[in-house]
Structures are given as C-alpha cells and as structure tokens.
Amino acid sequence: MTRFLFHRLWQSALVLGLMSFVVYSLIGLMPGDPVDLMITADPKITAEDAARLRELYGLNKSIFERYGNWLAAALSGDFGYSRLHAKPVMQVIIPALGNTVTLLGLSFALALAIALPAGIAAAYRPYSKTDYAINLAAFAGISVPPFWLALMLIIVFAVILGVLPAGGLGTLGAGGIWENARFLVLPVASLTIASIGGHTRYMRAAMIETLRQDYIRTARATGAGEVRVVFGHALRNALIPVVTIIALDFGYLFSGALITETIFAWPGMGRLIYDAIMGNDFNLALVALLLATLLTLVGNFLADVAYVWLDPRISFREVER
C-alpha cells in the first residue's frame, strides 16, 4: 500500500512540476510582457529605459533561467505580486479559493443527492418508462451549454420573475445569512444541473451491471426484500466505479466553476484565472492555474486511493499498470 501511494504521489509531483514549466512558458507566449505594459501606462519611457527595465527584471534572459529564478522564489514561498490587485498573489488567491470551495462543495453535494437516487431508480427497471424519462433528462443535462443554461436562469429568475439576484456576492453584515444565501442559488443551480446528467448515467450503468450479478440472484433466492437487495447488497458494489469516475471529474468541476463564476460575477478561482489571463496578470495567472492543477491532481490521487480501499479485489499492481 505505502509503495503504491508513494509511486502515485511521485507521479503527481512529476506532472505538477512539468505543468509548472509548461504553463510558465505558455504565459511567456501571451501578448505583451510586463515592460510593454509599463510603456503603455507611461509613454515617456524611452527605448533605453525599456531595455534597462528588461535587464532589471531579467526579461532578456533565457526561458530556462527565468523559470529557474521563479521556481527558486516560489519554493521559498514568494509567489510575487498581482498586477491587477496590487497585492501579494497569495493574498488574492486565498479568499477566492474559499468562495470556490463553497460553490463547488454545495453543488457537488446537491448533484450527488439527486443523481445517485435517479441513477438507481433508472437501473432498477431498465428500459421502463421511468428509465426512459430519467435517461432523457440526463442526456439533456449533458448536452445543455452550461453558460447558456446560466443565462436562461438569469432571464427567468432575475429578469422576468425578479426574485433572485443576477450575480455578485452579498455584502457581509448586510441583510443576514439568508439575504447572502440568495446570491448562491442561481450559480449553485446551474453548476448542479450541468453535472447531474453525467453522474446519473454512471450510476445507472454501474447499478445495472451489479444487479445482473449472481450474488444478487442468490440474495433474492434467500428471500431478501427488494430494498435490502438494492441498498444492502448492490449499492456498495455499484458505487465502486462511480466513486472513481466522479472523483476523476474533479478537473471538469474547475472548468464548470470558471464558466459559472464568470457569468454570475462570483469572486472565486475560476473568475480569478479568467480575469488574470485577460488582464495580463502573469504572476497571478500562473499561480492560480498551478493551484487548480494541484487540486485536480489531489482529487485524482484520492480517487485512486478510494478505488483500492473500496475494492479489496483490485491489487495495487493492477492499478499501477
């Protein structure tokens, strides 16, 4: 077990290290550099000044040298300054991370609470009317453009009915918790709907497969009630693949957060990354992207651990392969 975990951790660290270099180089390829931005801000800067500034900031060095310097600083805890927010990068990222965790956590829990029972209900009688209806809804959920769904929710609830705010984050201290919670309703709803479809189909497929197994027939033959068969015998086994697939979708959640947060002006990581890239805030974009990658890798790592832990039949060697 320890050997497997160690191997997995080492692999994740390698991916993260590689990604830090790739993202660093990519960001260097975006339009403009910090000195260009200064020239735009202050037309009095001469060509010699610009050259001197590039020298000062090390922008004339090779990409490897610059990356090495950045990495050394980052490893000692210095991630640089955010240009847009005029604050150290970490001070900008931490509150945004908190907001994203609230949003993702709520919609993740809500999506599972709806998708798992729906998947089980569909699987219990495959190709019945119930299954057909659930399947249709799941396909619709997978196929709806997430940002368009968000726009439609805004049109219905904020424009036509006028019962919920179209975006933003409530002011703390004003209006109490319920007043602030109203700002969460539409973002959470659109993120939840976007992920229910996939989860439902995974759950349905796994449950159908499980209900076909011999031990289920045995359980029925011994006179176990249907509730006991489905929830006592089948559910735990059916959950094994579902847990792994859902945990592997972690990176996908981040993509959803980016869209939802941008549309609803929710000050989280997704919107932060988008704004940083659009606003040429190189330091912030780099660290935020790497943090998103790190969190995704942690999610994948936990998925591997959960897989082995849930299913003792799987040997570690098999997973490594």
Binding site: G251, F254, L258, L289, T296
Partner: peptide, 8 residues
C-alpha cells in the same frame, strides 16, 4: 486527462 481543461 488530469488537467483542469478549460483554464488551460
């Protein structure tokens, strides 16, 4: 597969 796709 493990990467956060949309931000990248």
């Amino acid at each position: 597969i493990a990467l956060p796709l949309l931000p990248l």
